[in-house]
Design a protein around this nucleic acid. Structure first.
Length: 882
RNA sequence: GGGCGAUUAGCUCAGUUGGUAGAGUGCCACGUUGACAUCGUGGAGGUCAUUGGUUCGAGCCCGAUAUCGCCCACCA
C-alpha cells in the first residue's frame, strides 16, 4: 500500500502550504516565450485599502479558473494583479482620519496630506492581497502594479499630453456634477439617480411696466437666485405677447428677459421655464444660445454665496425653505404640488449633487466613442453574456464629454502648468522653466488631480510598460479576457476600450466576461451598512477555499445575480470530502509496484472500457464548456461524473476484482482507477486547486505538480458507444432490482438468486457477463438465464426490462398485495409512455415531417413499451389469480 | 419615458442546436457490507407565471399581459 491520506478532508492542513509551494516554485510567473502562445488576463485592481468581499472572490475565482486551465493547456499564462489608488474614496478616509486627530487638509497642506495618504496606503494597503491568496489565485505577484507607480503615472501623463495635443482634452466652463460633501467635481457616471417624491412650486414673476405676471414651475426654488431669464416655447400662443418683454425676479428684483426657445415644452408645468444657466445643464445651453451670461449662487459646500443677497451663507435646503416662505408671504407663490422626480446622488457618499458651472478639464468623447462602438459591432469585442453589449453601445452612443479633473489631492496631478502673468496653459510632464508665450518665470501647476478611472482606463497596457515598446507589451498585449462586474461597464470597461484603441491601436481584450452580484440568502445586496455581508475568509476558514470557489461558480449563469447559501458551500465541501475518500480508497488498494505504463487493452473489462469512454467524453465536454465560458456547466459535469459514475458505479463495480484472486484483473482495475482519478484531478484542478494538488502529490509516479501538468485531451479511440449502451442496460437492471426490493422492504443483506427470462442473445450475453455486478450491487446470490417460464414458481417479485424479465424468488418475504400495487404503478407509468408515443405516431404530421431517426426512435419505443406492458399485465394477472 | 433580466420541485437554481423536465438542499423510508454518515440505496414532489401564435412537436422561437428586480434618461 502506498502512503495514504488522513482519514478526513481537512483543507486547513494543506491550503496555505500548497500556496506557498506554488508560489516559491514560481509557477505563477509568466515570461515571454516565443515558443508558446500567450494567454493574458489583467486583474481588475481592487482599491488598495479595500477588504476582500464576495464580489472579489467570485471575480478572481473565475479568472483563476481560466488562467489555471490555459496554463495546463500549455499557454504562457499571465495574470497580472495590482491595486488602485481609488482617489476619492481613499482621500475621504484620510480626511476622516486627520479630522479625528483635530487636523484639516488645509492645515496639513498638500505635501503633508499626501504624506498622510501614503502612510494610510502603506498601513492598510496590500492586506487584500493576502486575502486573495487565501482563495488560491495563481496570479503573477512579481508583476504586481499600483496605479500610482512611477511607470503607471508616466503612462497617465503621456496619455493626457497626447490627448491634449490632439485636441481631445480641453479645459472649459461647463455644467458639471458637484458633490458638496466630497468637494469635487464628479463625472456623469459617478452620479446615481434616484426617483423620489418632492414638490413642484408654481411661482409668478411680475412683468416689468405691466400689471400681469408670468407663472413658472420649478422643483428647486432656491435657484431663482441665479435666474437670468424666463423661456417659453416660440409657438406657445399663451405667451407670444410676452416674448421680448422683461420680468422682475421676485425677492431679488433682478430684471430678466422673457425669451423664446424650442427647448421649452408647452404641455409641461405652466409652459414657462425659469432659466438658471449656472445650475442646470439645459438652462446652460439655453443661456449659451441667448447670451445670458452666468450667475453662480452656490459655494463649494452648497451654501448660498454672496450672489444670493439675503440668503447668503444659508444651506441650500434652508435657503429653499426660507425662499418658499418669503415667496408665499409676498404672494408670488401660486401653488405647490407633489411631484416625482429623479435626484442625482454622489455615487460614493450619497450626497445630493448640484449641477453647476465650473472650469474643469474634459475628454472629448465623440471621436473616441466611435471606434469603441465599431469594435463591438464588428465582433472584435464580445460580451458574455451578449446582452451587455447593448448596455455598452447605448452608453457610448449617448455619451457626453468626460469631466476628468477632481478637486482632490490624492491621485495623479494634472500635468498642466499656467503662467501667472499671461494665463498661458502649458501641458508637459515636467514644469516648464518659463512661460512659452511671455517668458515669465511665474509658473504654477494645476492643483487638480485626475479621475481615478483615467488611470484605470490604461490598466491593460500601462501595466506592461507602455508607452515603452517593451517585450512584454509585444507578447502579452492585447489581453484575452476581462472578468468584471456588470456594474462597472461604464466606469471602466468602456474607458479601457477607447483608451486602448486610441493609444495602442488595439482593442484591449477579445472577451468581456461579466459577473453578477453576490447577494445574501434573502436576495439583498451584501453591504457594510446592512451588516449582511459574508466574509469570504470566514467561509474559507470553515469549509476551505475549494468549497467556496466551487460554490461561487456553480448553480448560476454568467451575468445573473446569485444568492449565497452556506448550505451550498457545505454541499461542495462534502463533494471535496467525497473526492478525498475516493482517493483514499484507490490508494489503499494500489499495489506498491504499480506503474503508470500504458494499459494492456486486452485485459480491460467491460466496466473499464465504460469508465474510460465516459471520462473521455467528460474531458471533451468540460473543455468545450470552458471554451464557451460556461464555467458552471463545466464544473457541474465534472462533479456529476466524479460522484456518480466514478464513485457510485465504477468503484463499486471494481471492488470484487480488487479483493479477488485474479492478479492481472486486479492490476488492470488499479491502473484504470488511477488513470481516471488523475484525469478527474486535472479537470477539477482549475476549480478546486488545493485539494486536487494535495491529492495529486500523494499519487505514485507523478513527474510534476498538478498545476503545471497537461490538460487532458479527448481520444477518439477511447470512445465506446457500444460498451456504454451495454453498461446502461446493466445499470437499468440493477436499479430496477434495487427498486423492487426496497419497495418490498427486503433488506440488502438478504441475498437471492436472480432469474432472467429472455430469448434475446445480446441480452443473455450482457447479463451473463454482468453476473458479478449483480452479485455486488443488487444483492444477487446467483444469476440464471431462463428461456421459458416453465421452471418458474410464483414466489417471485419481478422486474420488467426491455427484452427481459427478471424474477427474484423470495418466497415468504413477499407481500403479494404490495407487489401487485407496485406492478400497477409500473403499468401506469408504461401506459403514460405508450399514450405519448402512440399519440405521436398516429399523428400524420409527425410521421411525415419529423426527421427519420426521430420517428424510428419513437417506433422502437412503442415496440419496447408494448412488449414491457404485456409482461407487466401478464404478471399482474398471474398474481391476482392466486 | 426607454431598455434589460427574472418567473421551472417546499427552498435556491441549472436546462447548450426545439424531440420523454434536471441538480443541490429539504422531506420520507431503509441501511453503519473492509473509501466516505461530510456516506449509501430507494422514494415522494413540477399544468415550466398567464395568454395568443409559429411548428408534426415549445420550458426553449415570435407577439401580448401580469408580478418582482435592475439599468439608463436634461420634462423645468
Amino acid at each position: 500500500m502506498i502512503e495514504n491520506l488522513p482519514k478526513t478532508y481537512n483543507p486547513k492542513s494543506f491550503e496555505d502550504r500548497l500556496y506557498e509551494f506554488w508560489s516559491e516554485k514560481g509557477y505563477f510567473k509568466a515570461r515571454v516565450d516565443k515558443n508558446k502562445k500567450p494567454y493574458t488576463i489583467m486583474m481588475p485592481p481592487p482599491n488598495v485599502t479595500g477588504e476582500l468581499h464576495m464580489g472579489h472572490a467570485l471575480n478572481n475565482t473565475i479568472q483563476d479558473i481560466l488562467i489555471r486551465w490555459k496554463r495546463m493547456e500549455g499557454y504562457e499564462a499571465l495574470w497580472l494583479p495590482g491595486t488602485d489608488h481609488a482617489s476619492i474614496s481613499t482621500e475621504a478616509k484620510v480626511v476622516e482620519k486627520i479630522k479625528a486627530e483635530g487636523k484639516s487638509k488645509d492645515e496639513l497642506g498638500r505635501e503633508g496630506f499626501i504624506e498622510e495618504a501614503w502612510d494610510w496606503t502603506r498601513k492598510y494597503g496590500g492586506s487584500i492581497n493576502n486575502q486573495l491568496k487565501k482563495l488560491g489565485i495563481s496570479c503573477d505577484w512579481s508583476r504586481e502594479r499600483f496605479t500610482l507607480d512611477d511607470g503607471l503615472s508616466n503612462a497617465v501623463e503621456e496619455v493626457f499630453i497626447r490627448l491634449y495635443e490632439k485636441g481631445l482634452i480641453y479645459r472649459g466652463d461647463r455644467i458639471i456634477n458637484w458633490c458638496p460633501n466630497c468637494r469635487t467635481a464628479i463625472s456623469d457616471a459617478e452620479v446615481e439617480h434616484e426617483d423620489s417624491m418632492g414638490y413642484i412650486w408654481h411661482i409668478r414673476y411680475p412683468i416689468k411696466d405691466e400689471d400681469g405676471y408670468i407663472t413658472i414651475a420649478t422643483t428647486r426654488p432656491e435657484t431663482i437666485l441665479g435666474d437670468l431669464a424666463i423661456a417659453v416655447n416660440p409657438e406657445d400662443d399663451r405667451y407670444k405677447d410676452l416674448i421680448g418683454k422683461t420680468a422682475i425676479l421676485p425677492l431679488v428684483n433682478r430684471e430678466i428677459p422673457i425669451i423664446a426657445d424650442e427647448y421649452v415644452e408647452m404641455e409641461f408645468g405652466t409652459g414657462a421655464v425659469k432659466i438658471t444657466p449656472s445650475h442646470d445643464p439645459n438652462d446652460f445651453e439655453v443661456g449659451e444660445r441667448h447670451g445670458l451670461g452666468q450667475c453662480i449662487i452656490l459655494n463649494e459646500d452648497a451654501t448660498i454665496n454672496e450672489n444670493g443677497g439675503n440668503y447668503n451663507r444659508l444651506d441650500r435646503y434652508e435657503a429653499r425653505k426660507k425662499i418658499v416662505e418669503d415667496l408665499e408671504k409676498e404672494r408670488y407663490l401660486v401653488e405647490v404640488k407633489e411631484h416625482e422626480n429623479s435626484i442625482g446622488h454622489c455615487e460614493r457618499c450619497k450626497t445630493v449633487v448640484e449641477p453647476l458651472i465650473s472650469k474643469q478639464w474634459f475628454v472629448k468623447m465623440k471621436p473616441l466613442a466611435k471606434p469603441a462602438l465599431e469594435a463591438y459591432y464588428d465582433k472584435n469585442l464580445n460580451f458574455i453574456p451578449d446582452r451587455f453589449g447593448k448596455i455598452y453601445t447605448h452608453w457610448l452612443e449617448n455619451i457626453r464629454d468626460w469631466c476628468i479633473s477632481r478637486q482632490l489631492w490624492w491621485g495623479h496631478r494634472l500635468p498642466v502648468y499656467y503662467c501667472e502673468d499671461c494665463d498661458e496653459i502649458m501641458v508637459s510632464k515636467e514644469s516648464p522653466e518659463k512661460c512659452s508665450k511671455c517668458g515669465s518665470v511665474n509658473i504654477y501647476q494645476d492643483p487638480d488631480t485626475l479621475d481615478t478611472w483615467f488611470s484605470s482606463a490604461l490598466w491593460p497596457f500601462s501595466t506592461l510598460g507602455w508607452p515603452e515598446d517593451t517585450e512584454d507589451m509585444k507578447y502579452f498585449f492585447p489581453t484575452d479576457v476581462l472578468v468584471t462586474g456588470y456594474d462597472i461597464i461604464f466606469f471602466w470597461v468602456v474607458r479601457m476600450v477607447f483608451s486602448s484603441i486610441e493609444q495602442t491601436g488595439e482593442i484591449p481584450f477579445k472577451d468581456v466576461f461579466l459577473t453578477g452580484l453576490v447577494r445574501d440568502a434573502e436576495g439583498r445586496k451584501m453591504s457594510k451598512s446592512l451588516g449582511n455581508g459574508i466574509d469570504p475568509l470566514d467561509v474559507i476558514d470553515e469549509y476551505g477555499s475549494d468549497a467556496l470557489r466551487f460554490t461561487l461558480v456553480t448553480g448560476n449563469t454568467p451575468g445573473n445575480d446569485m444568492r449565497f447559501y452556506m448550505e451550498r458551500v457545505e454541499a461542495n465541501r462534502n463533494f471535496a470530502n467525497k473526492l478525498w475518500n475516493a482517493t483514499r480508497f484507490v490508494l489503499m488498494n494500489l499495489d506498491e509496484n504499480i506503474t503508470k505504463d500504458s494499459l494492456n487493452l486486452d485485459t480491460l473489462e467491460e466496466e473499464d472500457k465504460w469508465i474510460l469512454s465516459r471520462v473521455n467524453t467528460v474531458i471533451k465536454e468540460a473543455t468545450e464548456n470552458l471554451e464557451k465560458y460556461e464555467i458552471g456547466i463545466s464544473a457541474q459535469k465534472i462533479y456529476e461524473f466524479t460522484w456518480e459514475e466514478y464513485c457510485d458505479w465504477y468503484i463499486e463495480m471494481v471492488k470484487p476484482r480488487l479483493y479477488g484472486e485474479d492478479i492481472e484483473s486486479k492490476e488492470t482495475a488499479e491502473k484504470v482507477l488511477l488513470y481516471v482519478l488523475e484525469n478527474i484531478l486535472k479537470l477539477l484542478h482549475p476549480f478546486m486547486p488545493f485539494i486536487t494538488e494535495e491529492i495529486w502529490q500523494h499519487l505514485p509516479e507523478r513527474d510534476k505538480p498538478l498545476i503545471i501538468s497537461d490538460w487532458p485531451v479527448y481520444k477518439e479511440e477511447d470512445y465506446h458507444p457500444d460498451v456504454e449502451k451495454r453498461m446502461a442496460y446493466i445499470m437499468t437492471a440493477i436499479k430496477g432490482i434495487r427498486n423492487a426490493r426496497q419497495e418490498m422492504n427486503i433488506a440488502p443483506s438478504k441475498k437471492a438468486p436472480i432469474l432472467c427470462l429472455t430469448q434475446d442473445e445480446d441480452v443473455k450475453a450482457i447479463l451473463s457477463y454482468g453476473k458479478r455486478y449483480f452479485i455486488n450491487l443488487a444483492s444477487a446470490e446467483d444469476i440464471k438465464i431462463l428461456e421459458d417460464r416453465s421452471t418458474l414458481g410464483d414466489d417471485n417479485i419481478s422486474v420488467v426490462l426491455d427484452k427481459c424479465e427478471i424474477f427474484i424468488p423470495l418466497k415468504d418475504l413477499i407481500d403479494y398485495n404490495k407487489e401487485i400495487k407496485r406492478l400497477e404503478k409500473e403499468k401506469e407509468k408504461l401506459e403514460l409512455e405508450l399514450k405519448r408515443v402512440r399519440g405521436k405516431l398516429s399523428n400524420e404530421g409527425f410521421v411525415n415531417k419529423a426527421p427519420e431517426n426521430v420517428v424510428a426512435g419513437e417506433r422502437e419505443k412503442e415496440k419496447k413499451y408494448t412488449d414491457m406492458m404485456g409482461k407487466v399485465i401478464e404478471r399482474l394477472e398471474s398474481l391476482k389469480s392466486n
